[in-house]
């Protein structure tokens, strides 16, 4: 088991955004978090990342857990729209967790960044300015940065938003490969069909936990609900 939520809940200014969460993620799992807008998905991710402490319950991590092993793909922030930074600089900053007290990145960090740039087909764009890229290219840049950081766990907040269908397919294929390489993936997605094809587990949120189980069971649960 990598981490488990035990009756955890999170609130903003006293308004509960997500509560009653009981689930666990094992190493190698591919968990897809689904639910409508405002159902607490992003809040849950922030909680798992340790950016927000739960107001009730707790999260238990594996014994050998280090916070720096997570790669995180956030939703776009407004400040990044006019930020002067090259693709290379952004992707390299994914290694920040491993910088420690060193002032600058080593050759190994640069190599890792380059590998991830290649993996996402961004090699030719690496000298370009981040703010001048298309939405899809920016998304892929941030994904490359997340991969630079991810040792064990990849947490993705809507990785497919802004991607055209073929780029989305590429990302799915990439995630599949990463999972086979031993990475655990937790992802928030609106693309239910694509997610169900790949995910091993599904968590359905509507401010409360509506369903947690394997993808196969989730299909059955959905059918039963409609009947």
């Amino acid at each position: 088991m990598l981490l488990s939520c035990q009756n955890a809940a999170w609130a903003y200014d006293g308004n509960v955004a997500a509560s009653g969460l009981n689930f666990s993620v094992a190493a190698g799992d591919y968990l897809c978090v689904v639910g409508e807008n405002g159902s607490g998905k992003s809040t849950l991710l922030r909680g798992l990342l340790g950016l927000k402490t739960p107001c009730a319950g707790k999260i238990v991590y594996a014994a050998d857990w280090r916070g720096t092993d997570i790669g995180y793909l956030p939703q776009q922030t407004a400040a990044q729209k006019d930020f002067p930074a090259s693709v290379q600089e952004v992707v390299l900053s994914g290694r920040i967790g491993r910088l420690g007290w060193r002032p600058f990145y080593a050759a190994a960090d640069k190599k890792a960044a380059l590998n991830n740039l290649k993996l996402l087909g961004l090699e030719r764009l690496r000298g370009r300015c981040f703010r001048e890229l298309s939405g899809g290219q920016q998304r892929r840049t941030l994904l490359a940065r997340a991969l630079c950081a991810a040792q064990k766990l990849l947490i993705l907040d809507e990785p497919l938003s802004g991607l055209d269908p073929s780029a989305a397919q590429n990302v799915y294929a990439l995630l599949q490969r990463l999972r086979q390489a031993g990475l655990t993936i937790i992802m928030v997605s609106h693309d239910l069909r694509g997610a169900l094809r790949q995910a091993s587990h599904v968590l359905h949120l509507q401010n409360k936990q509506k369903f947690f189980g394997t993808a196969a069971n989730y299909k059955k649960w959905l059918e039963k609900k409609h009947v």
């Binding site: 990342l49 950016l51 916070g67 720096t68 922030t77 930020f83 920040i96 967790g97 940065r145 997340a146």
Partner: peptide, 10 residues
């Protein structure tokens, strides 16, 4: 560039 990402990376 991204405070949340930096926090998540420790």
């Amino acid at each position: 560039f991204d405070e949340n990402f930096a926090r998540s990376a420790g």
